[in-house]
């Protein structure tokens, strides 16, 4: 089976608020799938649908070809999940937690877990409630990773963590992906991390899927152009085919679809000079789509 996750026309409302609007995407085996979006865009909601924590109101969610709501054991046994909020029980000790988790997953690799423990510097006898936020995240990562899951899901793994912990998490992502056939889905709003490691990126904005394509395609498709006008423009110039135009006075930045626009020609047409024409960063693409 090629597609690890297949989401079709998924919608979800919470009261009057539509958290997801008709989202369809697929995640194929062996790729790193980055899910980006601002706070409240629906990333966590989508991820919780994959885990069966939310039931699909309309549309369908299939993970490993199975429905996570009706077959939780089969699906969850192959998933490793690191949640955004620290949710490990505080009263447990580190070794107790690992022994508890080991009982659920047949592929638990004790040597790998011990190696990670040593690398992260976690004390086996420490109570989880005494761990700092970064140590807590690392422990959660070990718990999610040590059974070498077919699908590793990280929900905003880096939020509020220092660069060293973030590095550890990215390393785990890379390690997972170099193991044959394993997939990673991670949601983040730290876009430079997403740019580093993702193959595919999906961008959610207020519940709608704005973009879902391989990262290289996205970067090839978008360009950033800096126009300089002779006279100060009172309103943003109307640039045909632009996703977003931003700026003030004489200088305006345009994020546009690279295949449909020839920079110099467009600038001449508007009566401005093209100062800069370069590939847009994921950050700028994201903001452009979010604000459009």
């Amino acid at each position: 089976m090629r597609d690890v996750v297949a989401v079709t026309n998924l919608s979800r409302r919470f009261g009057a608020n539509a958290a997801l609007r008709d989202v369809s995407l697929t995640v194929s085996r062996g790729c790193v799938f980055g899910l980006v979006g601002e706070n409240g865009a629906g990333k966590s909601t989508l991820i919780k649908h994959l885990l069966g924590l939310w039931r699909a109101e309309t549309g369908a969610v299939k993970v490993f070809g199975l429905d996570p709501v009706s077959e939780p054991t089969a699906v969850l046994a192959r998933i490793g999940y690191l949640s955004e909020q620290p949710d490990l029980p505080g009263w447990m000790r580190v070794d107790e937690l690992l022994r508890y988790m080991q009982a659920f997953y047949q592929r638990w690799d004790t040597t790998y877990a011990e190696q990670l423990l040593e690398q992260f510097g976690l004390n086996l006898g420490a109570r989880i409630k005494t761990l700092s936020k970064g140590q807590h995240a690392r422990l959660g990562l070990i718990a999610a990773e040590a059974h070498r899951p077919d699908l590793l899901i990280l929900d905003e793994p880096s939020s509020g963590l220092d660069p060293i912990v973030r590095r550890d998490i990215l390393e785990a992502v890379i390690r997972t992906i170099t193991d044959e056939g394993r997939t990673v889905i991670f949601s983040s709003h730290l876009l430079d991390e997403v740019e580093r490691v993702s193959d595919h990126v999906a961008m959610l904005h207020k519940g709608t899927l704005k973009l879902c394509a391989p990262l290289d395609d996205i970067k090839a498709k978008h360009r950033r152009m800096l126009l300089r006008f002779e006279r100060a423009q009172a309103a943003p110039p109307d640039v045909p085919g632009a996703i977003r135009v931003d700026g003030a006075g004489r200088e305006w930045t345009v994020i546009c679809d690279a295949r449909r626009m020839h920079g110099a020609a467009m600038a001449r047409h508007l009566g401005a000079s093209l100062v800069e024409d370069c590939p847009a960063s994921l950050d700028e693409i994201f903001v452009a789509h979010a604000m459009s």
């Binding site: 069966g52 939780p72 969850l76 998933i79 949710d87 490990l88 997953y105």
Partner: peptide, 11 residues
């Protein structure tokens, strides 16, 4: 149900 328990492969 806390997500720690909900994500365990148990029915």
């Amino acid at each position: 149900l806390p997500s720690f328990v909900a994500v365990r492969p148990l029915t």
